[in-house]
Write a protein that binds this DNA or RNA. Structure first.
Lengths: 224, 224
DNA sequence: TAGATTGTTAATCGATTAACAATC
DNA sequence: TAGATTGTTAATCGATTAACAATC
């Protein structure tokens, strides 16, 4: 079959894990870290499953992916489990990123400390507004977007976070790529086109909203 | 089998569509609307698929779900297709929501005009900061969080958007639910527990980041 | 007419779930 | 020992993809 998905790194059977598994692991990690603060030392799949409203067999399968060894009847050593999930998710590999578009969403992402736990560090922001250029947001410098290529090259940055309005997204994406960016995390509500080999992760709130709305609609139709 | 997913409205075989389909439809809609501005009148599945890097058969299946009729050799009438997707997604049913936590993420959501296209309208915001209470954000009043229950009840709001720090998420969720909220869109990076029948849609950037990071890692390992 | 595209049914592939042995 | 939980293999279920007829 001709696969039309030219620009995608596909998470498929050639890897030994699935995308749904990959998406659930950070959720487990967040929960396990709360257990850590409560001085818990051992945790079982059923415990995780109950807490997160998931199927315990699924949790076991997911954990298996990370290669950690548990003890029958006992469960998993909490510290070991956390360490293995973090290793699997490459949390200790520092990925530096720049962010373009210091609007409110940009601000929110710049101020979110949770990314560090997953290895992502936003090192600089770009905007065109004179009110923002030259300032600092959460200790990160805001440069004029004119400097985008220069700084990407000088700092050898590979990840670009796109939080500009839809109308500018493609243009900024093009500039990111031509300056050497290898992966784009796109928060603009528009599809962007990039050359082969460039990774694009598209964040789409409209999709989530559609799921939420449909659940509400179905609930109303079923219960009333 | 005992299903442990007590609190979920499950999108399964009892409906005639799948969650992946539901998540793709808004993406099609966004693209189709750009065609509309370019005065295109007819569109085919292969055209949509090419533009969005998807499989044309999948696009056809998804569109079939909305019940629109196309013409062989020609494609779908653009206006009709847009209308059908919008109808399927209930874009014309106004869903009113309140938002708690007017930090940057809250601001970003309050300022995002795209939700209106999907029927969601944020009618008020809540925060505890004296700098924000009493002000307007994008024409929406910011009330003190003390007024949360009163306003939810008075306006008969069913959707709550949660953009508070993780530490407050559960407490605010409890207050939302006891005031009558039926669905929570949770942007806090923590699982919240609610009673049966309440819908929770959890937005988790860490999951997306994990997918992005893994794609980057796989690409590096394969290409170098 | 020929060819492209929809509509629809069948096949495949992969994720989830089940079953059960191993073991602490 | 008994019972709970992991580890692993098999079965099921559902989403995607393929195939092909219908048709404009």
């Amino acid at each position: 079959m001709e696969n039309t998905l030219k620009n995608q790194i596909i998470l498929d059977s050639t890897n030994d894990f699935s995308e749904p598994t990959l998406r659930r692991l950070p959720v487990y990690l967040q929960y396990l870290k709360t257990l850590e603060t409560r001085n818990v030392s051992v945790v079982s799949c059923s415990q995780i499953a109950t807490e997160l409203n998931l199927n315990p067999i699924q949790v076991r399968k997911d954990i298996e992916t990370t290669g950690v060894a548990g003890k029958p009847k006992v469960g998993y050593e909490l510290k070991e489990l956390i360490a293995n999930i973090e290793k699997f998710l490459c949390c200790h590999i520092k990925n530096e990123a720049i962010l373009v578009g210091a609007g409110h969403l940009g601000y929110a992402l710049l101020g979110y400390h949770g990314f560090k736990e997953f290895g992502l560090e936003i090192v600089a922001a770009f905007d065109t507004s004179p009110d923002k250029v030259g300032k600092f947001i959460n200790t990160k410098s805001v440069f004029h977007t004119d400097k985008l290529e220069e700084i990407i090259k000088r700092m050898d940055i590979e990840i670009g976070i796109l939080t500009v309005p839809a109308a500018y997204a493609q243009k900024i994406a093009d500039r990111m790529v031509s300056a050497g960016i290898k992966a784009i995390w796109n928060f603009a509500p528009v599809k962007i086109n990039v050359k082969d080999g460039i990774i694009v992760q598209h964040e789409n709130l409209a999709s989530s909203l559609a799921v939420l709305s449909k659940k509400i609609e179905l609930k109303i139709n079923k219960n009333i």
